[in-house]
Design a protein around this nucleic acid. Structure first.
Length: 260
DNA sequence: ATGCCGACAGGATGTCGA
């Protein structure tokens, strides 16, 4: 089964690009982030016509997540537990039956958190803490589980083109990196790192300052696998060529193959 | 040192992203 994640930066603006990529990549399941539209305006027809079921959790203008799946989507559940009335649409989870058992998947859009030293940064750290709490509860189910999405954290120095350029950014703060490590240390595997030793492999390039042309990117979109999913991991990749197309998102798809 | 670009809402330009 091929699982993928992609921050599309508006599903309406990316409709043609998303359909083109789905046709060529043929993922069984894809988690989308930054759909930036309400549920009633989500272009579900455009994906159903390609054979995908849709579980969506959107909001107007900002955020918004979705899961598309060729197989049935069961128990679709929006929102991370906790958060005291947090109304950002940043998380949706569902169960998908595979040929050899189920897989639980979550589409994750963690807060950016810039600028540091503000409530936005506190919100980021608090949100990642909630993600860790929920992830710990899900691990107790002992299921194949994939947390996939724009985690908005650069894990290591070699996951960005220039650590100095990012040292005051929320995405590369020691606290942010520790928050991601905290999730991983519960027992999750970074699918990309499990398959690839190469450094400077990016999933995001800013629209500004010719970042794509200069390969000034960062790796912030991640697939985190529970032990039961990691045991079945067969490969992982980043579809970086998508960034060079017409009217691209600033993120590209990340995918993995699991024997489920 | 700052903006660069792009999407959105709304109908000009400010907010947000990373």
């Amino acid at each position: 089964m091929k699982l993928a994640t992609w921050n599309v930066n508006s599903i309406k603006a990316r409709l043609d690009a998303a359909r083109a990529w789905l046709k060529e990549a043929e993922p069984d399941i894809v988690c989308l982030q930054e759909t930036k539209t309400t549920d009633d305006a989500f272009p579900a027809d455009a994906f159903e016509s390609l054979g995908y079921n849709c579980a969506i959790h959107g909001q107007k203008t900002y955020n918004g997540v979705a899961i598309l799946s060729k197989r049935p989507l069961e128990d679709a559940t929006p929102r991370l537990p906790g958060g005291n009335g947090d109304d950002h649409a940043r998380y949706i989870e569902a169960v998908v039956p595979g040929e050899h058992g189920i897989v639980r998947v979550a589409s994750v859009y963690a807060p950016n958190g810039n600028p540091i030293g503000t409530d936005k940064f506190k919100y980021k750290l608090g949100w990642l803490e909630r993600l860790a709490q929920h992830a710990q509860e899900l691990l107790a189910l002992e299921e194949p589980l994939a947390l996939m999405g724009d985690i908005n954290v650069i894990p290591e120095i070699d996951d960005c083109y220039d650590p100095k350029a990012w040292e005051t950014d929320a995405l590369f703060q020691p606290e942010s990196r520790a928050a991601l490590r905290r999730v991983e240390c519960l027992g999750f595997t970074d699918a990309f790192r499990a398959c690839h030793a190469e450094t400077q492999q990016y999933t995001f390039w800013d629209y500004q300052a010719g970042a794509w042309q200069k390969d000034h990117g960062i790796r912030i979109d991640h697939i985190l696998l529970s032990p039961q999913a990691a045991d079945r991991l067969r490969g992982c990749g980043i579809d970086r060529h998508v960034r060079g197309r017409e009217k691209p998102s600033d993120h590209v798809p990340v995918w993995c193959e699991v024997a489920i």
